[in-house]
Design a protein around this nucleic acid. Structure first.
Lengths: 220, 220
DNA sequence: TAGATTGTTAATCGATTAACAATC
DNA sequence: TAGATTGTTAATCGATTAACAATC
């Protein structure tokens, strides 16, 4: 089984997917070697940061040539996928929940969506890809029975805490919170906030900043 | 018009939405005052961090009582919304694109989706909420005509760069990239990666870490 | 060989935390 | 008043960057 390192600093961990997607692109273009300098330029980092980051990962570069893209792609895939298929369920069968439940890239990256659930009887029974939306009363059985690791929370902010409680009660170990809402869980459950709205707000701040730097007043 | 500060450190900026959603919840519960200590406990921070963070924002606490939730909610809303409606378009009318185009919370938080576009003639004309999917040939006219600020990129990784290029050519100033793919843009265009897959991977790492800490071997 | 590039150690920078006087 | 809590300054911690010997 692939070894996932557990001692990589979070900032590094967050950059690894960036490296991977860029390396993937390079491989498609037939590029076989890449230096820390080139990687840094492409991703907006310093070559120092790149070399430090890659030192956390089981790959060796070669002086004067850099890193082999094939080796990098392999090791980053193993590192990030954790070498295993993670099982997940989606709670909330609105537009976003359905989109996530059928998102191909999740499956390609080792996340296996085992079901989609919704509290509303109006959507229970609806087909979503190859799945059928089930009621929350079935959540526990599926999570326990399939040994599901992760719950993806795609419900409105107002029901996020309630849905989270049910997932935790069902025995889930990790929660991806798509809602823009603070949820509380016991210490043994990991939570990551997807922060879509927050990303949009960050972007708005950046645009605003860029405009004021250029002395341009806001449009309109 | 609301003043958005442009000199707030990024880590602080990223925590502000967390404060806001929690404060929002407190207000619904009728809580009028909150201390830095209580905020810190609820959000998993230190009271020191909370006070430092709030010092970047135009709000004053009162000794022995803390901060007024109403004042906090107001100032955080202004700070994050930027006091203006940002105009955005969505490119990519797959599940994710449609979900984002009709996402209520975006509108509530001051993001006005002015259109949804797709390169495939098979989906052009499809209804998405109150909108109709348009072809990429109309993108430029809409972006220029409506003075659209932001483009939301919800296309497959393989077409992300191409779609980004078209948005940039149309005159967009900021890009929210939902694809797990590295895109390059001119320096005057801001990009924020939504990192959904990455969040899921981070979560998997956390779950893995928690298990190994507890000496529990991976399930199955 | 000479020059480029790695891996790693040391220096810098910035964020978080601790501490405490001011104040309600 | 006495005690709690802010706002802010100083100390600590960790991440990023610079520098450079090793090496291809």
């Amino acid at each position: 089984m692939g070894q996932m390192r557990t001692n990589i600093p979070v900032p590094v961990l967050r950059r690894l997917p960036k490296y991977r997607s860029y390396i993937q692109e390079l491989r498609l273009r037939g590029v076989e070697w890449i230096s820390s300098q080139e990687l840094a330029e492409a991703l907006g980092l310093t070559s120092s940061t790149v070399r430090q980051d890659l030192s956390h990962v089981d790959v060796e570069g070669i002086s004067k040539r850099g890193y082999k893209t094939e080796a990098l792609a392999g090791v980053l895939g193993r590192e990030l996928g954790g070498g295993r298929a993670w099982k997940a369920v989606v709670v909330g069968a609105g537009n976003l929940g359905c989109a996530l439940a059928t998102h191909r890239e999740f499956h390609e990256q080792g996340f296996d969506i085992r079901g989609i659930f919704d509290a509303s009887s109006r959507v229970v029974g609806k087909k979503v890809g190859a799945m059928v939306v089930r009621g929350m009363d079935e959540l526990r059985r599926v999570v326990k029975g399939d040994a599901v690791d992760i719950g993806i929370l795609a419900v409105p902010a107002a029901s996020a805490q309630d849905a989270a409680d049910q997932l935790v009660a069902a025995g889930i170990e990790g929660l991806l919170n798509m809602a823009c809402s603070h949820i509380r869980v016991p210490a043994h459950v990991a939570v990551v906030d997807a922060r879509i709205l927050e990303s949009l707000q960050e972007l708005a701040c950046l645009v605003y900043l860029a405009r004021s730097k250029n002395g341009v007043e806001a449009k309109a």
